Amino acid sequence: MRKSRFTQAQIIGMIKEQEAGIPTAEVCRRHGLGTATFYTLKAKYGGMEVSEAARLKALENENAKLKRLLADTMRGNVVLKDLLGKS
Protein backbone atom coordinates (compact mmCIF):
# COMPACT_ATOMS: atom_id res chain seq x y z
CA MET A 1 0.00 0.00 0.00
CA ARG A 2 1.29 3.44 -0.94
CA LYS A 3 2.26 5.81 1.85
CA SER A 4 0.31 9.06 1.99
CA ARG A 5 2.06 12.38 1.41
CA PHE A 6 0.08 13.83 4.29
CA THR A 7 0.27 13.08 7.98
CA GLN A 8 -2.87 12.20 9.87
CA ALA A 9 -2.80 15.63 11.51
CA GLN A 10 -2.67 17.34 8.10
CA ILE A 11 -5.55 15.22 6.79
CA ILE A 12 -7.70 16.02 9.82
CA GLY A 13 -6.78 19.69 9.41
CA MET A 14 -7.96 19.65 5.79
CA ILE A 15 -11.25 18.04 6.82
CA LYS A 16 -11.76 20.65 9.54
CA GLU A 17 -11.10 23.44 7.01
CA GLN A 18 -13.81 22.05 4.74
CA GLU A 19 -16.20 21.62 7.66
CA ALA A 20 -15.54 25.25 8.67
CA GLY A 21 -17.06 26.41 5.41
CA ILE A 22 -14.21 26.60 2.92
CA PRO A 23 -15.35 25.04 -0.38
CA THR A 24 -14.01 21.55 -1.02
CA ALA A 25 -12.49 22.61 -4.35
CA GLU A 26 -10.53 25.38 -2.59
CA VAL A 27 -9.21 23.02 0.12
CA CYS A 28 -8.16 20.50 -2.54
CA ARG A 29 -6.45 23.15 -4.68
CA ARG A 30 -4.63 24.62 -1.69
CA HIS A 31 -3.26 21.23 -0.59
CA GLY A 32 -2.76 19.72 -4.03
CA LEU A 33 -5.06 16.73 -4.01
CA GLY A 34 -8.08 15.62 -5.99
CA THR A 35 -11.61 15.86 -4.74
CA ALA A 36 -12.04 12.07 -4.94
CA THR A 37 -8.97 11.63 -2.75
CA PHE A 38 -10.29 14.22 -0.32
CA TYR A 39 -13.61 12.43 0.04
CA THR A 40 -11.83 9.08 0.48
CA LEU A 41 -9.75 10.56 3.29
CA LYS A 42 -12.83 12.22 4.77
CA ALA A 43 -14.62 8.87 4.83
CA LYS A 44 -11.73 7.36 6.77
CA TYR A 45 -10.81 10.24 9.09
CA GLY A 46 -14.00 12.31 9.25
CA GLY A 47 -15.09 13.15 12.79
CA MET A 48 -11.78 12.06 14.33
CA GLU A 49 -9.28 13.96 16.38
CA VAL A 50 -5.53 13.49 15.92
CA SER A 51 -5.24 11.24 18.99
CA GLU A 52 -8.03 9.00 17.73
CA ALA A 53 -6.35 8.71 14.33
CA ALA A 54 -3.08 7.73 16.00
CA ARG A 55 -4.91 5.09 18.02
CA LEU A 56 -6.56 3.79 14.82
CA LYS A 57 -3.15 3.47 13.14
CA ALA A 58 -1.75 1.61 16.16
CA LEU A 59 -4.70 -0.80 16.13
CA GLU A 60 -4.31 -1.40 12.38
CA ASN A 61 -0.61 -2.20 12.88
CA GLU A 62 -1.38 -4.55 15.77
CA ASN A 63 -4.09 -6.26 13.73
CA ALA A 64 -1.69 -6.80 10.81
CA LYS A 65 0.90 -8.27 13.18
CA LEU A 66 -1.65 -10.66 14.68
CA LYS A 67 -2.80 -11.75 11.22
CA ARG A 68 0.80 -12.56 10.26
CA LEU A 69 1.27 -14.56 13.48
CA LEU A 70 -1.93 -16.50 12.82
CA ALA A 71 -0.88 -17.27 9.24
CA ASP A 72 2.54 -18.50 10.43
CA THR A 73 0.91 -20.71 13.07
CA MET A 74 -1.57 -22.17 10.60
CA ARG A 75 1.25 -22.84 8.12
CA GLY A 76 3.18 -24.63 10.89
CA ASN A 77 0.13 -26.75 11.72
CA VAL A 78 -0.22 -27.81 8.09
CA VAL A 79 3.44 -28.82 7.94
CA LEU A 80 3.12 -30.86 11.14
CA LYS A 81 -0.03 -32.61 9.87
CA ASP A 82 1.75 -33.47 6.63
CA LEU A 83 4.72 -34.90 8.52
CA LEU A 84 2.50 -36.97 10.83
CA GLY A 85 0.37 -38.19 7.96
CA LYS A 86 3.36 -39.45 5.95
CA SER A 87 4.80 -41.53 8.83
Rank of each mutant, 00 (worst) to 15 (best):
L69W: 08
T40P: 00
G34R: 03
I15V: 12
S87W: 11
L80F: 09
L83S: 11
A20H: 12
V27A: 02
V50R: 01
A64G: 00
I11E: 01
R68S: 10
I22R: 10
M14Q: 12
D82R: 14
K67L: 12
R55A: 15
P23N: 07
R75W: 08
Q8D: 09
E60H: 10
G21Q: 08
T40G: 06
E62R: 12
G76C: 01
D72L: 14
Q10W: 02
L84G: 01
D72E: 13
A43I: 01
V79E: 10
K57R: 15
S4M: 10
Q10I: 02
H31M: 03
G85S: 05
G85T: 03
N63Y: 14
Q8T: 02
K3S: 10
E19R: 15
T24F: 01
V27L: 03
A43C: 02
V78Y: 15
L69P: 00
T7E: 13
R30W: 08
Q8E: 11
K86N: 08
K67A: 12
K44Q: 09
A58M: 08
L83F: 11
A71L: 11
A71Y: 13
L70R: 09
I22H: 04
G32S: 05
F38H: 04
I12P: 04
A20M: 11
S4Q: 04
R68V: 07
T35G: 04
M48W: 06
A25I: 13
K65G: 04
G76L: 05
Y45V: 06
Q10K: 11
I11Q: 00
A53P: 03
I12V: 13
G13W: 05
A58N: 06
S4V: 05
K42G: 00
M74G: 00
K42I: 01
R30M: 05
M1D: 08
E62Q: 12
R75L: 11
E60I: 04
R29N: 07
K42E: 07
L66S: 03
K44I: 08
G21K: 09
G47S: 07
N77H: 10
E52T: 01
Y45Q: 06
R68A: 13
V50H: 04
G13M: 07
K67P: 00
I15S: 07
K65C: 02
A20N: 15
G76N: 07
A71Q: 12
G13E: 05
H31W: 15
T73Y: 14
L66I: 05
A71S: 12
L41D: 07
T73I: 04
D72F: 12
Q10N: 08
L69S: 14
R75A: 15
R29K: 15
E49C: 00
L69K: 12
P23Y: 09
G47C: 08
L41F: 15
E52V: 01
M1G: 15
R2E: 13
E60A: 09
L83N: 11
E52K: 02
G46Q: 05
K67N: 11
